[in-house]
Write a protein that binds this DNA or RNA. Structure first.
Length: 104
DNA sequence: CGTGTGACTCGGT
DNA sequence: GACCGAGCCACAC
């Protein structure tokens, strides 16, 4: 287990701020942690440190609402989201309804 | 310190 | 809306 870097710590903190039944995008998450164009860095951090379920990494989807990846498997990710009230259609989520933009 | 990689995003065609 | 190429970031080697 590699020690979590400050950057990863900010990512996990942001993840925990996502209300249940909502999802966010790698881009929005990256901006929130202070890295406007670090969407890839965010994804890499989650893939390398899936502290699940301590960190709800399953609430992170692509900019188009499409689920792009999950360390435990996309099927698992989809199931978790639907269990929280998020409607997943064909591996995609409606960001117009479930998209969380870290307004605060 | 340079190179490669990955759960991304955007702009052009 | 789909496909393709380029850009950006943090991290491991």
């Amino acid at each position: 287990m590699r020690s979590p870097t400050p950057f990863e710590g900010r990512v996990y903190a942001a993840l925990k701020r996502i209300p249940e039944g909502k999802v966010t995008t790698y881009g929005a998450l990256a901006r929130y942690v202070g890295v406007p164009y670090g969407a890839r860095a965010v994804g890499r951090a989650l893939n390398c440190n899936p502290y699940a379920p301590h960190v709800p990494c399953h609430r992170v989807v692509g900019s188009t609402g499409m689920l792009v990846g999950y360390a435990f498997g996309l099927e698992k990710k989809i199931h978790l989201l639907s269990s929280e009230g998020v409607i997943v259609c064909n591996g995609k989520v409606d960001l117009k309804i479930f998209g969380y933009m870290f307004t605060d």
